[in-house]
Design a protein around this nucleic acid. Sequence first.
DNA 1: TTAGTTACTTACCTGAAGGTAACGGATAGT
DNA 2: ACTATCCGTTACCTTCAGGTAAGTAACTAA
Lengths: 120, 120
Amino acid sequence: MPLITRCEKNEKRERSLALRDAIELLGGKWKICILQNLSLYGTMRFKDLQEEVAGISSKVLTKELQQLEQNFLVVRTINNTKPVTVSYSLTEHAYETRNVFNALLEFGAKHRAVVKSGGG
Amino acid sequence: MPLITRCEKNEKRERSLALRDAIELLGGKWKICILQNLSLYGTMRFKDLQEEVAGISSKVLTKELQQLEQNFLVVRTINNTKPVTVSYSLTEHAYETRNVFNALLEFGAKHRAVVKSGGG
DNA sequence: TTAGTTACTTACCTGAAGGTAACGGATAGT
DNA sequence: ACTATCCGTTACCTTCAGGTAAGTAACTAA
């Protein structure tokens, strides 16, 4: 098999891995909402997030934040307050998701219009 | 409450609905891969898709295609061949996902680089 | 001492996503 | 009659995201 084919295959593989990783990381019910709020407010405490992200439970919020932190999208800071508070904010890397949000928003809006008008 | 606030609330609500719809529609393990293949090949039969989308079962492929069809992203055509074949292709509306793909791809690639380099 | 706040954690449950494997209907070739 | 192709369907199972509810640890204020 010629070299060019191997390269194309590797590129295709890298592409599909990147797509899958991105979908996996930003998918689910809450991730985007959390990132949006952090983007809007800058820094938020756990309780602020719980109130702003309507409907999320503390258990799920904890898990989502941990995943975002593990993926370098969110920074967790323990504040020296009483009672203790914890602040969350976005990393520089998280702002790379801007284009994704905008594209999703644009497509979502168009899609809702298509569905409302009955298709096509 | 002043009118401007109501407008802002409605806009925020519409935005979050659009985001959630888009994520829900394009999320999951297979949707993007299927759309990508259809975008690449133009028209594909059921069996072609099953072979190209490595690892998917006929049951799951059926379900995904039905969902995509119900959401006006894919058109299903029964061909008058023997044995019967079925062709799938993208709608015009499906091409609105281009920006989403590109953004996801870009972010995914950057993200993989960040993770490989150990964060930040 | 009692109650409240903050940030979780734990135990339990449900529903949906997705996998495996076998089967079915239509048609054709041999 | 037997086998094969194509496009699914059906039954069954496992896994996991996510929901509910209660508890915990550290601290404060009354």
